[in-house]
Structures are given as C-alpha cells and as structure tokens.
C-alpha cells in the first residue's frame, strides 16, 4: 500500500507529474523538432546498374560496387547497391528509419526505362562501431534526464517535503521499517521511470521515426540502468534534503536546469568551453547517458565499466536513502 501510495502521488501530484512525465516529452518535442530536420536528410550512397534520375542531390552515386570495408569508410547512413534487378541495402545507422529512402530508390530503379522488374530487396546490417545520430543522442539524453528528474525529485519530496510536513513523524509511530519504506519509495520511482522513458521511446518512434526500442536481449541491461539511474539521482535528492532542508526543492530545480545543459545530454560536451566541460564530470546524467548508450550498443564504455558504474550508483543511492530514512525515523 505504501508503494501504491508513492506511485499514485507521482501521477496525481501536478508538479511531480509535470517533472516526471510532461517535461521529458516537451523536451523531446522541442529538441526533436530542432534536430529532426537534420535527421530527415539521411545520407545515402548508391550504386545502380540503371540510369536513375531526379534523385536527391545529396545522394552520392558510386561508380562501382564497394566492398564492406569501403562502405564503412564512407560515413553514410545507408549504402544501396542495385544490380541486375536486385537491391541490397546496407544499413550503417541502424537506429534511423530508412524506409522512405529505400522506397524512393526502389520506385526510381523500377521505373527506369527498358529494364527488367526488380527481383527482390535485401537489407543487410553491417555491424561495426556505431555512432549515434544527433537525434538519437538527444533522445537518449531525454531518457537520462527524465530518470534523473524522477529520482532526484523523489529524494527531495521524501526527505525534505515529507519530513517537513511531518509524514515521517507519523511513520515513526507505526511499525514500518526502513527497508520497506526505501523499497516502496524507490520501487514507485522505478515504475515511474520506466513509464517515463517508455513514453519518450514511443514518442521518438511515432513522431521522429527514431527507433529506440530495446532489443529483448538488452531489456535486463536497460532495466538495470533505469534502477541505477533512479538510485543515484535519489541519492542526490537525499543529499540536497539533508543540506538545504526546506529549500531543497528549489535547489533541485536549479540543479536540474544546470545539469540539463552541462551534462552533455542534449549536445556533446565538446561543444562546451573547456572549463565548463569539467562541470559535466560532476553531473550524474552524464554517466547515465553513457550507460544508456551502452544499452543501445554504443561502445563508449567497457562492459566491466558499465556494470561497475551501475552497481556503484545503486550502492550510493541505497546507502544515502537508508541513512536518511534512519535519521528521520529516529527519535529527536
């Protein structure tokens, strides 16, 4: 019932609902609409044994069929090889939806004069060290920052506002134990985080055609990152509550804004001046972003580093949360 209460409050409280659910979607739409235009110009290289006309000017025509190694060097999202009625599509940027490009090419190829009909189309995924497109980078950033918001606001609400309003005093009179309280509070935030990030993933796909759906084999990693992200953010909320007490909520919003821009979540940190780049090392969303990139197959961190960071985040959050609950459930 305590878990249900925390979860219910997350969706009924206007402020928490805005911060946890609405704001990530707003940021997603905002940044998506800005960077989405760039994304629509998917870079294509193609080889065709037929003469094609009226293709997009930024499509690069190849004179001969390239090898896979040559394709990797091309820095293109897709390479299309059309030869003898067969179309091979090589996806070098697997997150992007290239359906419209392939369809357009197929129509052009099929309608080329005096040629046989197309036999078939084969899509080939070339696996090598992937890089995120700008839009993918941002969408993953939105997920990271929304989880950060869910966790930090939970910490502040629990240990600043609820303490201030006397809810913890009320709990002290009952037999509720600190582990149950911690698990209920964090469990509710994790569910909220999964819903929030799921919403971002769904909207990314529906509106911007960015495929951030998690492959089944990475679901566990994804859930683990959600858990770790919530815990470390909750830990930060605890620290703010312990230091700033009544003004913790305000400080949290200031931090949220700072972290949004200086954690490298919405644009690469290298865009920032050097001194500000240092700030990013102290922002949890930066690391959360890295962990999520790993879930999406970007080798930005080793697998050992991934698990160590996750466990460290969970331990930090659990320790701080447990400490705070113990402190506030202790007689004065």
């Amino acid at each position: 019932m305590l878990f249900y209460s925390f979860l219910t409050v997350n969706f009924r409280n206007g402020f928490l609902f805005f911060m946890n659910i609405i704001l990530p979607v707003v940021l997603l739409l905002l940044f998506g609409s800005v960077f989405g235009k760039q994304e629509s110009q998917i870079t294509v290289a193609f080889y065709s044994d037929r003469q094609l006309t009226d293709l997009n000017s930024n499509w690069n025509r190849l004179e001969s069929i390239p090898t896979v190694e040559e394709m990797k060097e091309m820095d293109r999202d897709i390479v299309i090889i059309a030869n003898d009625g067969k179309i091979d599509v090589y996806l070098l940027s697997s997150f992007s939806s290239v359906d419209s490009e392939v369809t357009m090419f197929r129509l052009k190829y099929a309608s080329a004069q005096n040629e046989k009909p197309i036999v078939n189309i084969v899509e080939n995924k070339i696996t090598f060290k992937r890089q995120l497109s700008d839009l993918e980078y941002i969408m993953i950033g939105v997920i990271a920052i929304s989880l950060f918001s869910v966790g930090m606001n939970a910490g502040v609400t629990l240990f600043s506002e609820y303490v201030q309003y006397g809810l913890f005093r009320r709990f002290m009179l009952t037999n509720v134990n600190r582990l149950y309280l911690l698990l209920s509070a964090t469990g509710a935030q994790i569910i909220t985080g999964i819903i929030s990030s799921g919403l971002v993933i769904a909207i990314s796909w529906l509106i911007f055609k960015v495929n951030l759906f998690i492959s089944p084999q990475f679901i566990f990693m994804y859930l683990f990152v959600v858990f770790a992200s919530i815990m470390v953010s909750l830990g930060l909320g605890v620290v703010l509550s312990l230091i700033f007490k009544k003004s913790a909520s305000t400080i949290a919003q200031i931090l949220y804004t700072i972290f949004m821009f200086f954690s490298g979540v919405y644009f690469p940190i290298t865009f920032l001046p050097k001194p500000l780049q240092i700030v990013s090392y102290f922002t949890p969303p930066r690391y959360m972003h890295v962990l999520f990139q790993k879930v999406y197959g970007i080798d930005i961190i080793s697998i050992q580093g991934f698990w160590i960071t996750c466990v460290l985040f969970i331990v930090i959050g659990a320790a701080l949360g447990s400490y705070a609950i113990g402190k506030f459930l202790k007689p004065a």
Partner: peptide, 9 residues
C-alpha cells in the same frame, strides 16, 4: 496537532 497526509491520496 498539525497533521500531514499524502495530499494526493
């Protein structure tokens, strides 16, 4: 004397 609740329950 001063009671507090989960205001959204």
């Amino acid at each position: 004397q001063e009671n507090s609740f989960f205001e959204d329950l």
